[in-house]
Design a protein around this nucleic acid. Structure first.
Lengths: 339, 339
DNA sequence: ATGAAAGCGCTAACAG
DNA sequence: CTGTTAGCGCTTTCAT
């Protein structure tokens, strides 16, 4: 067994096929006919390629300025975190499907993870993402400086999840929480609910704003009062107060809040949806809640589609946005108000 | 917005800092002290780096360094097939974890998929895998010609799942089905079973042989007769025959067989495990069966570990094998024989 | 129709 | 201690 045979270079192929390196380059890039290289020569080159197991070195290729049909996937945390196993999975499925369709390979940036489990785009001031033609970014990221820098450098990327960084144009695909939330309020109103509360944590992040807006719009549509609660403590006392206030349905921003709510209800001998309809707006996984369905697969596909479009059109401003419809919650924990 | 400002190169930094390019290289690579560059110069360089937003071009770096710290992941089918969503998932998790640990990025080869959903290593005679320093291969692959060729080319790869190709040395990590099967037989014997059948499909693939061997060994250990059934039709008639023959426990090679068996039992008014203990040896997903647990995560991790070892040690023959222990089945469908 | 040669941005010898 | 230089493997004019 010869073992570590050196990787074949273009020059080797050229030598074996008895042609020049330029010819090899033309052939492997499918510019054979275009450049007017005779079919026979093409075949000779391909035979040599086959014999040597030649594959173009992507580093050299992209150094020379051409694309390497590599799309990066960068997550700001471990891509397969143990605790929320399938959060990224569906996104990835969509990303992969579209990559297959568009003939791209995917680079999962794993090397960028530090000891905290955080992944940074820039390490030692270097941008590892630059290895890929463009990248899909996803995950909850606290600081936006990396994003801003990436955009400033003109690196093509699409963020999964609506994202704005002041003074920067960022392309993203997002889920249309606003419309979905609005519709949910409408549905609750149609069921007879007159006082629908909205509960959210004290940590007011950008991504929450559109859900609030949707809630407000929904209330306006149905002529309902806006009952916003910003809290991280949904205890039995809160339930008592809400009950006294005539609240019969609650939109919970996230799953932990909803869990607290259900526990608090239980402590008062109540249950959802009999005594209170409960809708969770964002869940990590598809679970037993009445929750909005995040179109993860579609978002992944959409991100790749947008990215390849950006890569194709060279003059794109890179501030494209695409909102995908959320699935509406099933009736699991939704019912008519207690009369 | 200046927009497409050209990316700063090392030369630009050198010019601004008034030093040579080599100095810049040393500084950005942290070889400053080591090379004995005065602190003041280092600071001057870093300041220039900051001002220009310089980031080293990774393509140039890896071109220079021969390796690009990219590990390939090649599956012979769609990596995220819709019908068996989480079959590859756990392997991938393990692969990613180890890649993070070893500082490698991962390339998911998606571009190689043809219209049938098959993925080939070689397309147009080109080996796309060569893009990565080495690759992990997984999935059920019918033909071994690609594998043989890959090995002949000296491309470093590790196969997940035991694999032998005549005349070729292939490195793999596998699950130790033999030991596990043997232990299962032992456990059944300990429960009092005297006639344990082994049922397998007519398609005798290599991967099945070690389970058979384990079964035989287990029977020998316990002094039980070998009752091998090769069939794809586990109908009620088979159940009658088995019953008449005193069979009280069945090892089913795969899940479809087990399903047939349970259905056939039901048709005769019997159920598992009361009337018949049923163990499935290989399942696609962790389901309600008493089945061997394939150590997918560990196999993924092990494959990457083996691969990086092969890449590190330049003289490796590339025929390393590693067997990982299977988890034993829970008692879901296992019980003592009907007395 | 094919070949020769010049870089892409970086690192590592080797000079100075 | 710092600068000069020679490629890494590829694509792309420009000659032939």
């Amino acid at each position: 067994m010869e073992g570590q045979r050196r990787r074949a270079r273009q020059a080797d192929v050229a030598r074996l096929a008895g042609v020049s390196q330029a010819t090899v380059s033309a052939v492997v890039n499918g510019r054979g006919p275009e450049t007017g290289i005779p079919e026979q020569t093409v075949q000779r080159v391909l035979e040599a390629v086959r014999q040597l197991g030649y594959a173009a070195n992507p580093a050299a290729r992209s150094l020379r300025g051409k694309r390497n049909r590599l799309l990066g996937v960068h997550t700001f945390e471990s891509i397969f975190p143990v605790d929320q196993l399938d959060f990224y999975h569906e996104f990835l499925v969509g990303i992969e499907q579209q990559a297959v369709a568009d003939g791209y390979d995917l680079v999962l940036f794993a090397s960028t993870e530090d000891l905290d489990g955080r992944r940074r785009i820039y390490t030692d001031g270097m941008n590892r993402l630059a290895l890929a033609d463009g990248s899909v970014l996803l995950g909850v990221e606290p600081g936006s400086t990396e994003l801003a820098r990436l955009a400033a450098e003109g690196y093509p990327f699409v963020h999964i999840g609506r994202r704005t960084v002041p003074g920067t144009e960022i392309s993203w695909v997002g889920a249309d929480y606003a419309s979905a939330t609005r519709e949910v309020v409408g549905r609750l109103a149609a069921l007879g609910h007159r006082r629908v509360a909205y509960v959210t944590g004290p940590d007011r992040m950008e991504v929450f704003l559109d859900k609030e807006a949707g809630y407000r719009a929904g209330c306006a549509d149905a002529g309902l009062p806006e009952l916003m609660y910003v809290t991280s403590q949904l205890d039995p006392a809160w339930v008592d107060a809400a009950h006294a206030g005539g609240v019969t349905a609650v939109l919970a921003e996230n799953e932990p809040l909803a869990r607290q709510l259900v526990a608090a209800l239980a402590e008062r001998g109540m249950a959802a949806p009999a005594d209170m309809s409960v809708v969770v707006l964002v869940t990590m996984t598809e679970s037993g809640w009445s929750s909005l369905r995040i179109p993860r697969n579609e978002m992944g596909r959409g991100a790749v589609k947008m990215l390849t479009r950006i890569l194709a059109g060279s003059g794109d401003p890179g501030d494209q946005h695409h909102l995908l419809p959320c699935g509406l919650p099933d009736d699991h924990m939704i019912g008519p108000p207690r009369s």
